[in-house]
Design a protein around this nucleic acid. Sequence first.
DNA 1: TCTGGGGTCCTAGGACCC
DNA 2: TCTGGGGTCCTAGGACCC
Length: 432
Amino acid sequence: MNTSLIGLIDLNNFYVSCERVFDPKLWGRPVVVLSNNDGACVARSQEAKALGIAMGVPWFQVAPLQHSHGLIALSSNYALYGRLSQRIAAIIRSHVPQQEIYSIDESFVDLSGIADPNTLATQLRQKILDWTHIPSCIGIATTKTRAKLANHIAKTHPEFQGVFNLESCTPQWQENIFRHMDVQEVWGIGRRMAKRLQNLGIHSVFDLYKANPHELHHQIGVVLARTILELQGKPCLNLHTQPVPQQQMVVSRSFSGLVTHINELKSALLQHTCRAAEKLRQRGLVTPALIVFAHTHPFRTQDPQYHGHCMVPLVTPSQDTLQLVQAAVQGLKQMYRPGYRYKKAGVMLPDLRPCHEQQSDWLDPGTSCQRQSLMQTLDQINQRFGQKTLVPASTLNTRRVAMRRDRCSPNYMGKWDEIFSVSCDQDFLRTW
DNA sequence: TCTGGGGTCCTAGGACCC
DNA sequence: TCTGGGGTCCTAGGACCC
């Protein structure tokens, strides 16, 4: 039987790398990409990491580095990152038989039975770089958890030139590497679990690798036991080459300031509801209910706190914007409490099902067909003329709340009027 | 002044049933 | 006096991921 071999392709500092593709001035400079509302740093260039900027750190804490160290901060441009991610996924797919797209910047691939996986990985990495200018690292090992570790080694040791195969090392060498890595580097071990493990005397990856999975299963849980087995080279996590059916959907945003008026909450919630319904239709899903929620600012401990939510069941599972908007308004009325300063609001759609499994409303089948074609038309118009060209009237009669996004790059790959352009003079053209 | 958004999985405990 | 045991389902909360 062939032993399985898994590769993990991880795009380096992905959001920053995407911005650099279109703006060479960003090369060699410390750069961060900020979360929505320009709140926190969610991606950092190597130079920014070297300045000690941690993942998720609030922007205001590091903003002084702009003047002292030339730090550049950009608002996140997910439309751009999504397009580049799709391109790279297609390049990977053309090189390997099986691919699991794990996140916007990571893919697991099946390298079992490939004669020279290291060479294939090196070629693939080079092609991604040549075709998109996005640097990446590839870790190779017998399980996903080990491939993650191998990737980490590839990232942190430039001498391996971006590709590291854990299985080409001797067991002694592997153990030596594991001894020098903190247990929190292991995929699935977060801050809290690391703390619990430290109390049990498990500090390094090596300590966890040598631990008894059955004992820790009883002491802590099955997730940890699986992690240990994976670390020891016994696969517990399969490659998901087919997309896993989505169970729930959340669309939510923080406000850039604090919101008190019900109409401001309504504006945000209805925008989120329209977006959620659109995503349902894109993914061919229906929801049996809609949950609206809003809460106050958790860091403002001096303010009274409130976490409100309300579930509104639908008559039949739906992906219809107008039905969902109606449910959201109903939920908001029940959930809203005056006198609080709200920081965030959103909608959740639970228990999603494919729409082909949906039972139509037998009391009124004609109307549901008409509504389907109405929604198709809505999507087509918005796709052709831009998002929010056609919206339900009820979303207009509200106080709008804007999101802060002061440092955003253009949508170079998604909008004609923002497309990347190159200009050059006549002399230059004559040289061609 | 200023702290993201979108997911998954697991577990414990309560309600309920026979 | 004395009050079972085993199963399922649901939900909330915790932990983790990118």
